Amino acid sequence: MPHVTVEYGDGENPVYQVGGKSFVFFRNPRPDAVDPETGERYRDVIVLWVASEADKQALVQDDASPFFTTAHFDGHSSVLVRGGRVGELSLAELREVVQDAWLCRASARRAKVWLSENPPA
């Protein structure tokens, strides 16, 4: 994706930004995302922005989906996915969620240019 910069947050986790706005970042282990069997905090949670609550719900409603959310993210336009489960997504699915994350955080001008050069399939 064009105009992407990478910053590093606490714990040196990468934060991908467009125009100074995060659209994908790797989260530090937090108490709201834990393994239900062991109680250990997930160390591989990735946050991706989504365009709307409807888009978020479409990704998290299937229990078999690698996408999830927590109460901490209620009302926030993002979904979570464990890095260890990214392989369950096809390359096309992964590409789509990353592109959508970029599109909802990029400026309207940048998004329009990118979409004109990369029309949806």
Rank of each mutant, 00 (worst) to 15 (best):
S77R: 15
E12Y: 15
A106T: 04
W49Y: 06
A54V: 09
A64N: 07
V113R: 11
V34D: 09
V47E: 15
F25I: 07
P2H: 05
W102G: 00
N118S: 03
V45D: 03
P36G: 07
V24N: 01
F25C: 10
G19T: 04
R41E: 11
T70Q: 05
W49A: 01
P31H: 08
C104W: 08
V34R: 15
A106S: 08
V86P: 00
G39V: 12
A92H: 05
T69S: 13
K56W: 03
V98K: 11
P119F: 01
E40D: 12
E12G: 15
V79I: 08
Y16W: 15
H72F: 02
F25L: 13
S77H: 15
A106P: 04
L80C: 04
W114N: 08
V4K: 04
D10Y: 15
V97K: 02
D35E: 06
P119H: 04
E40Q: 14
H3E: 02
V86I: 03
S116T: 01
D62W: 07
A92N: 02
V60E: 02
F67G: 00
V45P: 00
L91Q: 14
V15A: 09
Y8M: 00
R95H: 14
N28F: 00
R109T: 13
G83P: 03
V60Q: 05
N13C: 12
H76I: 11
D100N: 10
A33T: 13
F73H: 04
D63V: 15
P31Y: 09
D55L: 14
Y42I: 08
Y8Q: 01
A92P: 01
F73A: 10
G87Q: 07
V50Q: 08
H72R: 01
S116M: 06
V4G: 09
V18F: 14
A121N: 12
P29E: 05
L89M: 05
P2F: 02
V4L: 06
G20S: 09
R110I: 08
S22L: 07
Y42R: 05
A101H: 06
I46M: 05
K21L: 06
H72D: 07
L94E: 07
D10K: 15
R105L: 14
V6I: 10
R85C: 07
R105F: 14
S107K: 13
S90A: 03
W114S: 02
A58G: 04
H72T: 02
D44F: 12
N13F: 13
V97I: 10
R85I: 08
D74R: 11
